[in-house]
Design a protein around this nucleic acid. Sequence first.
DNA 1: TTTCGAGACCTCTAGACAGCATGTC
DNA 2: CTAGAGGTCTCGAAA
Length: 787
Amino acid sequence: MKVADVPGLPEGVADHLESGGIEELYPPQAEAVEAGVAEGESLVASVPTASGKTLVAELAMLSAVERGGKALYIVPLRALAGEKATEFEEFEQFGFSVGVSTGNYEDDGSRLSGNDIIVATSEKVDSLVRNGAGWIDDLSCVVADEVHLVDDDHRGPTLEVTLAKLRQRVQDLQVVALSATVGNADEIAEWLDAELVDSTWRPIDLRTGVHYGQGVHYDDGTQEELATGGSDSQTAAIVEDTLQDGGSTLVFVNSRRNAEAAARRLADVTKQGISDDDRQRLREVADEIRGVSDTETSDDLADAVEKGAAFHHAGLAREHRELVEDAFRERAIKVVSATPTLAAGVNTPSRRVVVRDWQRYDGTAGGMQPLSVLEVHQMFGRAGRPGRDPYGEAVLLANNHDELEELFDRYIYAEPEPVRSKLAAEPALRTHVLAAVATGFTTTEDALHEFLGETLYATQTDDPGRLKRVTKDVLAYLERNGFVEREDGTLRATSTGHLVSQLYVDPMSAATLVDGLRAAERGETASSGRQRASGDPEEAGFQTAGEMQETDSEADSDADGEGASPTPFGLFHLVSRTPDMYELYLRSGDREQYTELAYEREDELLGSAPREEEAAFEDWLSALKTAKLLEDWASELDEDRIAERYGVGPGDIRGKVETAEWLLHAAERLAGDLDDVESAAAVREARKRVEYGVREELLDLAGVRDVGRKRARRLYNAGIESRADLRNAEKSLVLGAVRGREKTAERILENVGHPDPEMDAVSADADAAAAAEEADRSGQANLGDFS
DNA sequence: TTTCGAGACCTCTAGACAGCATGTC
DNA sequence: CTAGAGGTCTCGAAA
């Protein structure tokens, strides 16, 4: 089928696509058109990656908008939202406006309601629906990318519920669901009342196989020796072979450490025979990487990149990842060893893919668990770059003949697993049941069941009672915590319930925050809890045996109702023990160290602590570790020191800070809801300190545009302590504080409203410069009590 | 005395969404 | 309780 034959497309679009080299549709695309995607028919397309799913979505959205209405494109990752939006922007010339909305990014200028095509994450869509975005009713087409993710324990239910909600709310909504090849695409199609295109067709060949001994055994029965010299490891041999063929390799491993170690070793292979052009480019990229962050992770990455290799995992800062992805796409970087981040993320195709580790540690399962077929196939799918490689190859590695056969059976010949809904789990239902009630979407338990009956879960389960039972438990939980009320069988959200739904936090997080804030009001801390818990202090609480040094009078005065306002550290701990904060791993030795810290600072820790022998104690300590990280950040400790102290990467620090900001914002609103003005102010300050990463005295300065934690400290040390000071500051002082950067100094003064920001003929003040140097050293200071 | 390598033992474990109001070095 | 790669330490032999 030709593009020109696609019905319903706006004037000019077909010509435009043809001039871009797309004349003939790929077979699955043609099937989709025949099934009516361009005429408003719902469709599930279960096809391999890179087989032209995006065009199917575009045809659906453009024709839908042409008929009237808006189109919504739901992505699983924020990083993909930008990528997709950029792709869709090529149609802006035909009058279609594209908008993006994710948690950390919202298109300015044109409001979403003015856009024809909106790209958003599933959570953001859910949130928009909850908060009553009016344009939802104007939708005529929704595209859900990577729908097989409804299988995900944590985030799958959101996508599932969101789709169900949109379908119920908007009459005749066209739903286009794009999926990887899965075992039960037909079930998904049935759920969505959609046509099905189920195909394994790929635009370029993909050979899959297993490497064992000297060569690769392929799925077509052929074997190939690798043309390599003396590489000892299997992975190195494959990389070397691919390199001789002028191709790049993507290696999937099961841990960050393995990714880094592999990159280090593979760099010895790639460093030979780098062209002068590549060398130059790699050096640039390495410099940029070093510029992103001062951490060891950053240096290690840059070292590898200079030799043509790289690693990729979530400990990297976002900028790191983008630099690596871009340089790999440009083929300057020859090999990337990655955790699954790269399999799910933006498009980074490679000539060869090596799935080195097919098992991954899973604490809940008590050991190594095999990856799912779907996951391995997703990794395989990164092999072969359309238009650049003649074919792609993806291989697993076997250590012996038995493993060779096992891998063939398990992954090469195997069909992907069916997708199963994970909706009937308390954490998922807590938030979605509350949202359904709070938005007035459902007002009775029956209506709730009716709605939940429209989900994929309902079509799949053999135990229809289960969803009802869990829903009942969840409703009881929501009532108990004062989020939902029941009156003559009518469900109604309380004002707190509405707020929680709007804030988009897990109701359990909200309950934790409310408990903590109330405890603060009553002056109830870990220390008072311990005092009360038992007459015998040796047995109560979490402290290690014997060491009591808290004065009774202090603890008593806290306990009898005179609440002091919570400290930042107490609040950091509070948000860290919320289920919405991902836990930091407690390493050996940490238990002892943080138990001691808990003891030292028990007066600040809100609510009562679990006893040391309780299972919950571990989590509580882990939250304490996170709280300490946040406190270090909000005390201007340098990133590299934090990374080193907690064994994390720059990406983890940013992630924790971002989550803390969000939860502290929720806590602030909840404190307001409790009419606890004092706590609300304390929470607000804690939030600001995390947001800017500064101590209290810099809060005013750090709010100025172009002034971050570093510059604020330099200015402060030079004697400029507030915005008012800055507005009236001697210019030479400011220039000295920013280490003689005239442009920077001018921008800052402009932003703060200085009457004359012009820096010509101003020379830097030596004392201020010295103070700036001093500020840099303070970030290295060993804050906190342990090394 | 220093250096090197094999082997025993120990350590640690993937990912990433959300609010709100604007801007780091 | 279950795994397994990598890092680190230790010991002995060679330089």
